[in-house]
Design a protein around this nucleic acid. Structure first.
Lengths: 144, 144
DNA sequence: TTTATTTCGGATAAATTTGTCCGAAATAAA
DNA sequence: TTTATTTCGGACAAATTTATCCGAAATAAA
């Protein structure tokens, strides 16, 4: 479904979001420890997310990563997925055809319309604040 | 969603199914041409599908691949997907957690329950005969 | 029996994804 | 200003997926 890179990216973003609720900035090491991911690889992903303006990065001592608190309810998981895996999950053909549409559909086309719709709906309506609140309440986890 | 290997596998299976409707056996070359896939790689995938008893392979002149006609309505796309990509799409955690369940769910767990259900339902109810009929009527395509 | 055709199976190679390393740049604090 | 800390960015490496090659095995037909 999602690439490994994307899974790390989502988890990292959610951890940063959780801490950003309380204006807490987190470091690369803390993030990697919290989501159980390779440090150096996680650095690359965070760099990408920063370039895409999904998170903010601050260099130097006391630096780290954070998300503007007021932006939390406006940023969605879908944005994170698109930034990392692109939009092939949302618009590509399930069987990999280059030109697959209503006129010349692949055999799975119709079946996947509703799955895709639901995936879109789910990811586009999952905002960082809601998910961060659940994390904070201990209702959900990022490890194990 | 599906690996490239799996996409080739599904398309190859459907092409064989289409021809098997009329007891026509098809060769590796015909299959690769019909689904626009690399010949040698397709051979590997067909070999795997034959081992999993989803298709039959016949060696020698006039050999090739076929599916028992009476089995067509009983074989589902889900079986093909499972044979190639395994069942991680159906049972694995969307964020890659090893232990993700109702007790300790990942942040996406609840959201993905219905998506997964629908994916299951869709793939488990897509049998080869139905899809082959559509292909034969030209309602769907395996290329472009 | 010989030949031609076709899949099988193992080795290898290319491409992509995942992951590491390390010096550079930024910057807060001493 | 110097030092320590932290992210940045480029090169490199390992692992996995995708793809190729080729001789072996099977088998239908000449």
């Amino acid at each position: 479904m999602f690439s490994k890179t994307c899974k790390y990216g989502i988890k990292a973003t959610l951890f940063i979001a959780q801490k950003s609720q309380f204006d807490e900035r987190v470091s690369l090491k803390e993030i990697a420890a919290a989501i159980d991911s390779p440090v150096a690889f996680t650095a690359k992903i965070l760099q990408l997310l920063a370039k895409e303006h999904i998170i903010n990065s601050i260099k130097g001592p006391k630096g780290g990563f954070e998300i503007d608190k007021v932006q939390l309810p406006k940023i969605t998981i879908k944005q994170v997925v698109r930034a990392i895996d692109g939009n092939s999950l949302f618009i590509g053909c399930a069987l990999g055809l280059n030109e697959c549409n209503e006129k010349e559909p692949c055999p799975m086309h119709d079946n996947f319309v509703s799955i895709r719709d639901q995936l879109n709906e789910t990811l586009a309506s999952s905002n960082l604040l809601d998910v961060a609140v659940d994390l904070n309440l201990g209702l959900t986890v990022l490890k194990r």
